[in-house]
Design a binder for these strands. Structure first.
Lengths: 106, 106
DNA sequence: AAATTATATTAGTATATTTTAATATACTTT
DNA sequence: AAAGTATATTAAAATATACTAATATAATTT
């Protein structure tokens, strides 16, 4: 039972754990965007962008709606952004520490 | 530049994104443990546990110290636990919603 | 209804991750 | 210094992910 929940959480993190998908989430932080806007801003192939969006949607992290020809994606649970912000914070601390290691005669 | 930072964040999430590693982090939430305690509690092979610990340590998420024969691991940045707690919260909302979908004539 | 536009899907190849099993290292105790 | 513990490393096989290119779908405009 506990194992299954860990698996579900791992699946969620796996969905997030890709540079392109992280950039997608950061783009969508301030509101919804259509696929065309996303792949142009990211400079990533349309097909590849679609695939990454599909990963995030399958994992129930993004939602989408159709508007004419366009498909508009947005973040389903804003808490995901909190996760990214904490990751940012940790990364800064890590880099900070790595930098300090230089100062001390290393 | 922005791409490199996304890559670093992705690497961090990748390190977290495994059921066994998530369980390790949850075990260490309340304090340090040696490898022998960890793999016994998790019911995972010693070698495999070592490998997963190495992944988390390489990513600077865990730290370790030696005490006699034992190696004792602990969480380096408590913020990682916050990330797991938010993931928990999101997962609960997702499951909740999935459950509700049943109620409504689906 | 044909052509156009936006998005999605599929298949194939390339890469990366995970697991298992065997072995190595590094302290400790005898 | 030999034997015993605790942990780490390595190699090989199995599995999963990612990217590219080609093609398919679906709504729109002409």
């Amino acid at each position: 039972m506990k194992e299954k929940i860990s698996q579900l959480k791992a699946d969620m993190f796996k969905a997030i754990a890709h540079p392109t998908r992280i950039r997608i989430l950061e783009l969508l932080k301030d509101g919804e965007l259509c696929v065309c806007e996303i792949f142009e801003k990211l400079n990533v192939e349309q097909a590849n962008t679609s695939q990454h969006l599909a990963v995030l949607k399958k994992q129930d992290i993004l939602k989408s709606r159709k508007e004419g020809l366009r498909v508009i994606y947005s973040i389903k649970y804003p808490e995901v952004i909190e996760i990214l912000e904490i990751a940012d914070k940790i990364l800064k601390m890590q880099l900070d520490e790595a930098l300090k290691a230089f100062g001390s005669t290393k």
